[in-house]
Design a protein around this nucleic acid. Sequence first.
RNA 1: GGAGAGAUGGCAGAGUUCGGUUGAAUGCGCUCGACUCGAAAUCGAGUGAGCUGGGGACAGCUCCGUGGGUUCAAAUCCCACUUUCUCCGCCA
Length: 421
Amino acid sequence: MLDLRYVADNLDAVSENLKKRGNALDLGEAAKLSQERRRTIGETEALKAQKNTVSSEIARLKREKLDALSLIEEMKAVADKIKVLDARLAEIEEQLAEIMYSIPNLLDASVPFGKDSDDNPEVRRSPIAPREFSFLPEAHWDIGERLKILSPSEGAKITGARFTVYRGFGARLERALINFMLDTHTQNGYTEVFPPFMVNRDSMYGTGQLPKFEEDMFAISGTDYFLVPTAEVPVTNLHRGDILNEADLTIKYCAYTACFRAEAGSAGRDTRGLIRQHQFNKVELVKFARPEDSLAELESLTRDAEGILEALKLPYRVVTLCSGDVGFSSAKTYDLEVYMPSYQRYVEISSCSTFTDFQARRANIRYRDSSGKVKLLHTLNGSGLAVGRTVAAILENYQNADGTVSVPEVLQKYMGTDTIR
RNA sequence: GGAGAGAUGGCAGAGUUCGGUUGAAUGCGCUCGACUCGAAAUCGAGUGAGCUGGGGACAGCUCCGUGGGUUCAAAUCCCACUUUCUCCGCCA
């Protein structure tokens, strides 16, 4: 959520910035409501001040056993007026909230202009280039079925489409990656967190999944809980409502969770393999930073995520999301894309963003600076990494002519083998 | 799932019986100052957040788990919910 005051005072600059995302928004209504809100607050507060003064006068009269009846009668009318104005104010604030919740974050000045993912400029590439195969490489879904380590049909049988059962070394590889990633990140100063896989509505609002993206979420019927679409939600909300100490910033967390996404609107896309599942595993990095550190922290967070791909010796590249491709809550995003031979292109495996104070304002996450002032902080997060896609990338990039798959060196101790056959 | 007891400021903890001078006693913590060569102890002063108005000093409003209600007036009364603890039941 943006700062209402800032929006109302800088209508042109804000709509100019939002226009780069490709969706024109009319902020006039918000500005109008904001004015009406302030005016109504002024009116009610004057009445409330009067009521408070007279009420203590009534208290005094009562104590002195004097007659207060006429004042009480008078205040009845004032109380009624206040009730009406308060109801009107609640109405205004509800409308205002609806508008404010629907406005995306302002883009950082460094975000390049562009229409969609085709316009995302490349920042850098891994030292390792995509491999030249001396044989016809298989897609990971074919490798998975042939080696009997991935079973989409069993997933479909016990649950449905876009669910996969991992078996044997497939299951072991998934687990090895989770452990390897967490081990690496904790060594880099991230505190490991293992949160619930379900969160309440307030948490979903806090990080911006609600109210706009409810149809992408799985809700638990009979409760007001949602399955987490990413660990970002529970981990960021760890500090919802908190005032943190500046000395404790930057706070760095890493967390493994399963992630659940309805993938509404993705029918027909990536139907084979592990790329787009309703349930997948992910290790997430989350930071709480001072505003002045946020861009630098985004760089280091991106590097930390890249470290996993580097250690796994996978070919990848980093792109900056252009203005038309940046997510709703983000001010700036780097995507890490791993080369996927089956797609013959780079495929997103991590998304690293700074949300500036957008989530912090919604979730009310603040810190006290050295002068004692309370300020909103900045939240950041990035995948480090999406585990299922990493399995897919390893299977495809490490496949051998004889049909086996080599195990990346750093994973061998976790796997207990150097080859999946 | 059943019964009972709680939820108050950074923490501990009064106040809730009998609604009014309580944004909230007291203690601890923290900040600044005094004392000291320095520190501890001691003494003094200060120490929540948000919103509205104002250039500012400041003034007003709101907040005692959350949301409603009663009342001129609610931390205090009523209702619902959430959550913590204790006991019972059930259970990996």
